[in-house]
């Protein structure tokens, strides 16, 4: 863009000094014009190469080896790691089930709630800005703090929820022992943090929907509810697809919340029977506890494929939302 500007800029009087070195200056200018744009974008690509491209390539390479700090030598094992992972690793598949379970359990209510919340905030309200700010607050809270507070709320012996259950005469729940209970608890942490974020995105998109449509619909006698489902949701389709893909990536990489749900030794195990061990936790377990770096590389790549697959499925599903066009 800056190049175009210079090309069209009116020539200014040339300083006499430059005339003598005209040839050199112009060839330098040509070089400059040709290569300096690359130079400008170079810093990004250097950083990208060091922190993204190289690790990706290295992960692929390491996944084909038996690299471990415990082995003096590295040997190439081909696809052995992947074969073991897919055919002979119940713990990995347990982690996959957990991850998907928590993903569904958190994302569906999360996006639904966000949509409802955005719709409510889109109306004329008293203290509108306050509410809009308030729903964004959880995002600036550190995940670790959220996880620690919720862990206390869901504590077995002295937890708030169990105290409430006890107060109404119900049996306390051991939130970390029961698989579904742990999924539920972790999903509430995720949702508490991300509902507001998604609601803000939906809200922004809603405000760009033309008021004329609503007026026309109202004249035709459409109820508020009908307007919501027939105008707002279809108009939000690209935004919904965006939030779905972002939630998919985040949801399948779920890590901090389940990790900090237990404290003390053995946190990466995600419960006594791996009730809430996610794929990323398993990855670190394999890498840092069992020192199988090659195998951990294979886990990372399979996770990548799973995310790509899920994002595609979600995209295809979301495209079907009111496909009246």
């Amino acid at each position: 863009m800056s190049l175009d500007l210079h090309a069209t800029a009116p020539p200014e009087p040339r300083p006499p000094r430059a005339r003598t070195s005209h040839r050199r200056a112009s060839s330098a200018t040509k070089l400059d014009l040709k290569y300096s744009p690359y130079l400008y974008v170079l810093p990004f690509f250097l950083l990208f190469a060091v922190f993204s491209a190289y690790p990706i390539v290295y992960t692929v390479w390491i996944a084909l080896t038996d690299r471990s700090p415990l082995n003096a030598t590295i040997s190439f094992v081909g696809l052995d790691n992947f074969v073991e992972l897919i055919t002979d690793d119940p713990q990995f598949w347990n982690a996959v089930v957990n991850t998907f379970g928590m993903f569904v359990l958190s994302t569906v209510p999360q996006l639904m709630l966000a949509l409802m919340l955005a719709n409510a905030l889109n109306r004329k309200l008293r203290a509108q800005t306050f509410f809009r700010m308030a729903i964004a607050m959880p995002i600036i809270t550190s995940t670790a703090v959220v996880a620690l507070i919720f862990s206390m709320i869901y504590a077995k012996d002295f937890g708030l929820i169990n105290w409430l259950l006890d107060a109404v005469g119900l049996d306390p729940i051991d939130w970390r022992a029961n698989r579904f209970a742990s999924w539920f608890a972790i999903s509430t942490m995720v949702d508490w943090r991300w509902v507001g974020y998604n609601a803000l995105i939906y809200l922004a998109a809603m405000q760009s929907i033309s008021k004329d449509m609503y007026e026309a619909a109202a004249l035709d006698g459409a109820s508020r509810r009908r307007q919501f489902w027939s105008i707002t949701v279809p108009q939000l389709r690209p935004t919904i697809i965006f939030t779905l893909i972002i939630s998919t990536i985040g949801g399948l990489q779920l890590f901090t919340e389940p990790l900090l749900f237990t404290s003390g030794s053995g946190g990466l195990s995600g419960g006594s029977e791996g009730q809430f061990q996610t794929i990323t936790m398993y990855l670190l377990d394999v890498m840092n506890q069992r020192f199988r770096w090659g195998y951990a590389g294979a886990v990372a790549l399979v996770l990548f494929v799973l995310i790509a697959l899920m994002s595609t499925i979600n995209y295809l599903l979301a495209r079907r939302i009111s496909s009246d066009k």
Binding site: M152, A155, D157, F158, T262, S263, G264, S265
Partner: peptide, 8 residues
Amino acid sequence: NLQSFSNE
């Protein structure tokens, strides 16, 4: 039934 080295 306390997990060793945990907050509990």
